[in-house]
Amino acid sequence: MPVTNLLPLPRLAALILLLFARPLLAGQTQVAVAANFSQTMQRIVEDFQQQSGHRVGLSFGSSGKFYAQIRQGAPFEVLLSADSEKPAALEKAGLTVNGQRFTYAMGTLALWSALDNISVQGADILSGGDFNRLALANPRLAPYGLAAMQVLDTLKLTQLTRHKWVLGENIGQTYQFVATGNAELGFVALSQLLARNIPSDQYWQIPATLHQPIRQDAVLLSTGRNNPAAIQLLAFLQGEKARRTIREHGYTLPPEKPAVQP
């Protein structure tokens, strides 16, 4: 075989390497995101990708399933949970990078009715009892559900309304119960109402003083320990631009720059 035939091969190899060079420099990271934060996160990631050149793969789902998957070695490098318990549990299990856990958003609750003949101005409608079904997310599973129950506890309406509760597995399903009119009233997330331009006279934004804060925590997983894309994304998430996007979508933020919790 003539030697000259072999010569193009290194050149070809160099060309192929060049093709991969850009993605190697601009990193890639895979992120698991709680379903309620999906729209907000898409916006934030657009900005982040533009600024950094990194690629971010987003998976949306329930935090409980993500927890189970991460424990079984799922290839996520960052988790944006809907609560603070699951990131803490993962940290305890040694699956996270210590010191990289923080509250990226705090949920706001709203009491909403999609029916024209019901106007929701405040808590009166709950004590009035002029409804058959009250939708809330399952307090056992969903932070928004737990907060809704705390609101009812604070208003001393738990006993009065309990037999009317219908529980959504998550806040998305709770929204559907109310949106289809099957439940006349329901506790949903303000972010959901804002995303669908629901007029503000249809819901009552629940004062944060009526329940414990709905903390949504993010965490860097051990798999992302050495990935600049994952680390930079978490930094970006705490930056001014992302925080503004988060507020615009109906969430609040801890007063200071979110500190790492003990």
């Binding site: 699951k86 549990a89 399952n138 529980l167 597995e169």
Partner: peptide
């Protein structure tokens, strides 16, 4: 709507256990 004794069947109860870790 996950109502005990009315609509909370085993599959849902099982799912709740898993989701609640």
């Amino acid at each position: 709507g996950n109502i005990a004794g009315e609509t909370r069947v085993v599959s849902v109860q099982l799912y709740d256990h898993v989701e609640a870790l």
